[in-house]
Design a binder for these strands. Structure first.
Lengths: 363, 363
DNA sequence: TTGTACGCGTTATCAT
DNA sequence: ATGATAACGCGTACAA
């Protein structure tokens, strides 16, 4: 029988059993093995005993399906991809995508998917650089994208091909791109509500000069909350939102004093990768000889950088990174089965913190 | 020609061009396309013009190779597995395998591998529970194992099949199992050397009643270092090593006082998952109304639990988790090409800390 | 120098 | 209820 021949090619045989070998051991055809091991989705009738024999043989040989072959034949392999466009290689866990990964992992595990971390597409780190890097994700059944700098062109191609992709972080540049994001608007509104409840009447937001959707949304939350809570900006009539191109140079002790003279008692900053604006704001307040929450209140739309962990906990909100990761997986798996995606927005948890309090009585 | 037919199956065609289509556009055979696009490793002669036509056609169609098909044909998929046997699902990043993953990722990226996290094998979390869970790792070209409770039987099977596996953490129960581990012995010796240099003459080690290799190695380091540095245990002649079955019950303020009366000025504990012995030791010292480094010196063989981050930094050493991960990847890829593995031991960095100093003059 | 033919391991259709 | 058989897209001896 030709069946018994080992592969003719000299190519190194891996020790991995194939369905054909399971079939031989079980005394059935390879087709039957595929049927049994595939869970018999077609609902074809099978002898319970045949089924048992196949299962036993598979276990004995330690059979495990080849994901590549499976993907080739069935267009699915139970793998979810994670591709991250972090700017620099994360030496510190906090700066990486690991917090998201916690949720991704948990939800993927719950749904029986394994994860592929596409790190190898780019020896060196900056993944977006290598032209075809993103294409490699097609190995997985679907993929999660993380980071701001995803190459739009390559991404559009994936989406247009109908490849299931979910971006973590709101996106609107690609119309058909699924995404999940933190509800920055709502969270910002809540922060402003709390500040108003404490008695503040005028506030400013310091943000970076950046067009990231996260920044846009936080500004929108700030503005919406400002209005909704009946607050106002500086009495001089200036814009309550400051876009700092160079935070250190612009957010100075003098700047703080000037705003205070314009009746501002609450200073809000946005979280960014580097924490630059929050750092600048803290430094400026320190430099002005003021301190929160006694002389003024500070709030941070997001979490403080890790190296500022010893400072008082900022009032603000936490980005639910793990929850976002989990939500992304849910949207992705929904996409896989052609279902409609969930609500893409995940709520942020308000963090009382210690940098906000009633405005000083003098003002 | 049958070649021109679109696929007969009704299965949804992905919009991605195949080599055959590139071939048709370029007016050559699919083989030639494969040859040209594959970089022509075999050194087969090709018309420069043919080559150019193929390249042009490929670019025009936006051709990218299907990784699954490539893997199927070439029998490698550029995937490294990571399987972790963490006891409970890690909610806190510090308790998980993420610190190792940092190094794993970096090294894998450097070597052009992607990573597969086998989380889906175990809906719910405890992976070792699901019988065939470990088998799934065969999906990758090789796999990293993490955690103390790897099921020996399943593991033996992989190793015997010649499947490349590297365990993170020393192991000697399976003779052919490759591993990388922290050099606890050397690190422990160094800690004792420092304590001796500070003037201590008698020391004890508190460890858990556990047979993990890490615990064994740390004890060995302590004992070796004790002798090498000319130190001794309690003057009463008791064993300088205490195995605490129930740390809280055994490591009491009285116990500390008794050891001190026996001339012990340096108290060493080992790091464990829970940090139980270190916690107990700290509590006992506090309870005895003593404090380090004035009344006695404390050292920790490992890192303190994250929730004790506000306590003074313990003298001791840090387990180079990222370095271990990277080393594991190097050993694994060496295995893949049949090369000999590196040195499996990775040095720990001594951490001066703030809990050790000269012994009190009175003693 | 290029094309033919086949195998990689799986799924799926269609006979039996 | 089970077994042939044909794809899936690519790599590669071997033939032309």
């Amino acid at each position: 029988m030709a069946e018994d021949n080992p592969p003719r090619t000299a190519k190194a045989r891996r020790g991995r059993p194939r369905q054909a070998e399971v079939a031989r051991l079980a005394g059935v055809s390879q087709t039957t093995v595929s049927l049994v091991l595939g869970g018999n989705k077609q609902g074809i009738a099978l002898h319970a005993e045949t089924r048992a024999r196949v299962l036993a043989a598979a276990r004995e040989l330690g059979y495990v399906p080849d994901p590549a072959a499976r993907r080739l034949a069935a267009s699915r392999n139970n793998l979810l991809g994670v591709f991250s466009f972090t700017a620099t290689f994360p030496t510190a866990v906090e700066h990486s995508y690991y917090p998201f990964l916690v949720g991704v992992e948990q939800e993927a595990a719950a749904q029986g998917f394994d994860l592929v971390l596409f790190t190898g597409s780019s020896p060196g780190g900056a993944q977006a650089d290598v032209p075809g890097a993103l294409e490699r994700v097609r190995l997985a059944d679907g993929c999660l994208l993380l980071g701001r700098h995803a190459p739009t062109a390559a991404l559009r191609r994936l989406v247009e091909d109908g490849y299931p992709v979910v971006h973590i972080g709101r996106r609107d540049d690609l119309s058909d791109l699924a995404w999940v994001g933190a509800d920055y608007v709502d969270a910002g509104v809540e922060v402003m509500r709390r500040l108003a409840a404490l008695g503040h009447r005028r506030a400013v937001l310091v943000r970076e000069d950046d067009d990231a959707t996260a920044s846009i949304d936080r500004e929108r939350g700030f503005r919406t909350g400002l209005t909704a809570a009946g607050l106002a900006g500086p009495s001089g009539g200036g814009d309550p939102v400051v876009r700092a191109v160079d935070p250190v140079a612009e957010i100075t002790p003098d700047w703080v004093r000037e705003r205070r003279e314009e009746g501002v008692t609450a200073f809000v900053a946005e979280e960014t990768d580097t924490g630059a604006v929050w750092r600048a704001l803290l430094a400026a307040v320190d430099g002005a000889g003021l301190s929160a929450p006694d002389d003024l209140s500070l709030a941070l739309l997001g979490s403080p950088p890790a190296d500022l962990a010893d400072r008082p906990e900022p009032t603000g909100f936490d980005i639910p990174r793990a929850a976002l990761g989990a939500a992304a997986v849910r949207v992705l798996t929904a996409l896989l089965v052609g279902a409609k995606a969930d609500e893409p927005l995940v709520a942020c948890a308000f963090r009382a913190g210690a940098t906000a309090g009633p405005p000083p009585a003098a003002l």
